[in-house]
Simulated scan of single mutants.
Amino acid sequence: MREILANALDVFNRHSGWIIWNLFLAFIPFALSFWLYRRRSTVRTLLWWVAFAVFFAFLPNAPYLLTDIIHLIRATRSGYSAWIITLIFIPLHLFAILSGFQMYVISLLNQGHYLKRIGLEKYINHSEIMTHALCALGVYMGRFRRFNSWDLVSDPANVLLITLNDLTSKRPAIVIVISFIGLTVLYWIAKQITLGLFLRFREMQVRREWFE
């Protein structure tokens, strides 16, 4: 039993060690979205704008987890037993991918809630589309150019130069556009499911209070 656990830990470290770190990076904008968009006050102080900048700098880390499906594909091709693939790789990787994307969905729902509160409800769809575009670009720069969110502060000139070069190059631009379309479609589906579950939960609460 001890040998099996040791092998499982080795397998996790080799192919799935990214999960905790990437989920942490996705959690940062998720947590910030509640402070930025769900707090009682709508006053935008200097601290609010700093947090807003950090929010958007780290937000692409959430949909970035979708691209980590490549780790699952590589792991399944590494010759491990069906039990390890079924009981370790698939559950862990799917959990990370789905959790990261769900944090992205909730973050944008919080953003829409804030826009509604300040009287800008008509711009919710526009803000979502713009966010998808920025995140598609961020995912591309992270996956293919290997930039991190903090590179925007530590090496902004290089990030800007390479980004502009990729946006004016045919192949990178096509990849970014395809990523944007995929992200938009997946977000719309996940948004409907999330809102449906939320409304169902509220309905159950109302019924429970009514019967009590």
Rank of each mutant, 00 (worst) to 15 (best):
Y114N: 01
L72Q: 04
Y104E: 05
L152A: 10
R2K: 12
F89K: 03
L23S: 10
I84N: 05
W210C: 05
I73R: 13
H71S: 01
F12K: 00
A75I: 05
I69A: 14
G142R: 05
S169P: 08
P172S: 10
L134A: 11
S81K: 08
I178G: 00
F58Y: 15
I189Q: 06
T45Y: 00
R44P: 00
V11K: 03
I85S: 13
S78N: 12
S149H: 03
S99P: 04
W150P: 07
N148W: 11
N61E: 12
T76I: 09
R200M: 13
I97P: 03
F58K: 00
Q205L: 14
T76L: 15
L72E: 02
S99G: 08
H15S: 07
I4N: 10
P91G: 11
T131V: 04
P63I: 02
N13I: 06
G100H: 00
W150L: 15
I176G: 02
E128Q: 09
F95L: 15
V11I: 11
L195Y: 08
K191W: 09
A51Q: 11
W35D: 12
I162T: 14
E3R: 06
T168I: 10
A53I: 06
F55A: 01
R207K: 12
V54G: 10
F56E: 03
D68Y: 09
I124P: 05
K122N: 07
V50G: 07
A26N: 13
L186T: 08
Q102F: 00
I178M: 09
